Every structure is written in C-alpha cells, then in structure tokens.
Simulated scan of single mutants.
Amino acid sequence: MNMKETIRAGLLAILLLAPAVAIVQAQQPGPSKERAKPSAKITEEQAKKIALERIPGEVTDVAIEKKRGKNVYVIEIQSPEQGEKDVFVDVETGKIVGTD
C-alpha cells in the first residue's frame, strides 16, 4: 500500500467506526438511579421486606431515586386494600422516609 491508500483506509475506518462509538456512548447510563446503587448499605431484598411490613401486597417495581434529599429505594407495591403505593426506604439506614 502506498501512503495515499493507507490514509484513505484509515479515514474510512474512522468514518465507519464513529457512528458505532456514538451509539455505545449514548447507551451508557447517565447519573440516574442505576448509578446510586453502589452506595446502598441496605440491599434491595431488605428494602422490599421493610416496605412490605408497612404496606402488605406484591412488589411490582424497585428503583433508587433521590427523594427528600436522600437516596431511597422506591418500592412499588400493588396492595389489595390500597391499590398501587410507593414506599421510600432510605438506602443507608433502612428507615421508611415516606409513602406515596
């Protein structure tokens, strides 16, 4: 290969790879509830148990969000008596900081 062909091949490779790199970067999670998990001292299972003691039912979803200035597990519970309820469990202490 001469110098021009080498440069063309390099530029072509860059042009073909750039969209793939952009897609991978776009799929990286941002500063969201998934990123908060490493600081959790209470496990997801512990948080579910704590929430179910407050509102009996079936857990339908669990997420970590910032509520009232704290990272909390948001435990979504489908309750036969109360319908759909959210229980907020502090990820560090395991205390319930609210319901919705």
Rank of each mutant, 00 (worst) to 15 (best):
M3F: 01
K41T: 08
N71K: 05
I42L: 07
I7D: 04
V87A: 14
I75A: 03
I75E: 00
K37R: 13
K66D: 12
M3I: 06
A63K: 13
N71H: 07
K4R: 06
L16Q: 05
A22C: 09
A40Y: 09
A20R: 14
K37S: 07
A47N: 00
V74K: 09
M3D: 09
A13D: 00
K66N: 14
E5T: 07
P56M: 02
A13I: 08
A13S: 12
G98F: 03
L15I: 13
V89G: 05
L52W: 02
R8H: 07
R35V: 12
V72L: 08
A36N: 05
K33A: 13
E76C: 00
P19E: 07
K41Q: 14
A63M: 06
A9P: 00
K49I: 06
G69W: 05
D61R: 13
K49C: 00
P80Q: 11
L11N: 08
K41G: 15
T43R: 10
E65S: 12
M3Y: 00
S39Q: 11
S32T: 15
K41S: 13
Q78L: 11
A22I: 09
A40W: 10
D100F: 15
A51M: 02
E34D: 10
I96D: 00
G69P: 08
A18Q: 04
Q78D: 13
T60Q: 03
S32D: 15
I96K: 05
S39H: 11
Q46Y: 08
T93Q: 09
G94N: 06
A63N: 10
E65Q: 14
M1R: 09
L52P: 00
I77H: 01
A13N: 01
M1N: 06
Q27V: 12
V24Q: 08
A18G: 08
I77E: 02
V62D: 00
M3R: 07
G30S: 12
V87K: 04
A36V: 02
I23C: 06
V91M: 14
S32F: 07
G94L: 06
Y73M: 04
K48T: 01
K66F: 10
T6R: 15
A47H: 00
T43K: 09
S39G: 00
K33S: 14
I77Y: 02
R54N: 05
K70F: 03
I50W: 07
D86C: 01
A18H: 05
E81S: 13
P80E: 14
N71Y: 05
K66W: 04
R35M: 10
E84H: 08
I23W: 11
I7L: 13
K41M: 11
E34A: 15
G69S: 11
A36P: 01
Q82E: 14
A63C: 05
L12N: 02
A40N: 00
T43H: 08
Q28G: 02
V97F: 03
N71L: 12
N2F: 07
T60L: 03
G10Q: 03
V97I: 13
P19M: 10
K41C: 08
A9D: 09
I50A: 03
L15A: 13
P19W: 10
P31A: 12
V72M: 08
L11I: 12
I14V: 15
E45C: 06
R54L: 11
V72K: 06
G83C: 04
E76T: 02
K85T: 02
T93H: 09
K48F: 00
T99G: 10
F88Y: 15
V24S: 04
